[in-house]
């Protein structure tokens, strides 16, 4: 849940796009008609968030507003409206555990508990080493492979507590675990289908899954 924060309390270092992001921002703005650069506010906020270590500081919001010649409050409205913009610092890995209906029915409570216990933080908190922030989020659109969580840009699906522990340990050790299903599903075929090639490759008896 994206709670409105008291942004006024946080003194932040100045923010400027890097050379590369400046170029990326120009490419994004060029997609829109002249004078409509405000349409680029969401991708630019995303760009700023990535550059800023996963969250939007006051300085970043102000910078994007100035960059797009928008009133700051308009940019702030967007940043507070969407839950994927973080208005507070997050750890290097932002672990977002879906606890919506499908994932919940498939055991997301255990997944969240595992994250909590393994990292020693409650949802919304950042671990002491600054590596992990755990959040509880609403549906991320991967219900067919529930339960799932998102870390950074990657989805980890068909999770079990053990799988979660190994993913987190990998991240802690600086490795990047392979995203996707933990039970070998390629897509969203039935979980108990032994050979997925039989379905996706040669097709079923009537020529389709």
């Amino acid at each position: 849940m994206n709670d409105v924060i008291e942004a006024g309390d946080r003194a932040t270092p100045p923010f400027f796009f890097t050379e590369a992001n400046l170029e990326a921002a120009r490419v994004i703005i060029a997609k829109y008609p002249e004078g409509r650069q405000a349409s680029a506010v969401m991708p630019l906020l995303d760009l700023a968030q990535r550059q800023n270590g996963g969250w939007l500081s006051q300085a970043a919001i102000q910078y994007v507003a100035d960059f797009l010649e928008m009133p700051t409050i308009r940019v702030y409205e967007v940043a507070t409206f969407y839950t994927m913009y973080n208005l507070e610092p997050v750890g290097r890995h932002h672990v977002q555990v879906c606890t919506n209906l499908s994932c919940w029915l498939r055991g997301s409570d255990a997944i969240l508990r595992t994250c909590r216990e393994h990292l020693g933080v409650h949802p919304g908190e950042t671990s002491e080493d600054g590596l992990f922030t755990v959040s509880e989020v609403e549906c991320l659109g991967a219900c067919v492979n529930a339960p799932m969580m998102q870390i950074g840009d990657d989805y980890y699906e068909d999770l079990s507590p053990d799988a979660v522990r190994s993913i987190l340990d990998d991240l802690k050790a600086g490795r990047t675990p392979t995203p996707g299903s933990r039970i070998g599903r390629r897509s969203s075929e039935p979980a108990d289908m032994p050979d997925t090639d039989a379905v996706t490759g040669s097709g079923g008896p009537d020529g389709g899954p």
Binding site: P71, T72, I73, R74
Partner: peptide, 25 residues
């Protein structure tokens, strides 16, 4: 934003959490 021409008031958050404010008060 329309009459006064100082777009300084806005609505932050959404749904039940929507709040009217000026930027950083």
């Amino acid at each position: 934003s329309e009459v006064a021409g100082v777009p300084e008031i806005g609505a932050i958050g959404r749904g039940e959490h929507m709040e009217i404010t000026t930027y950083l008060e």
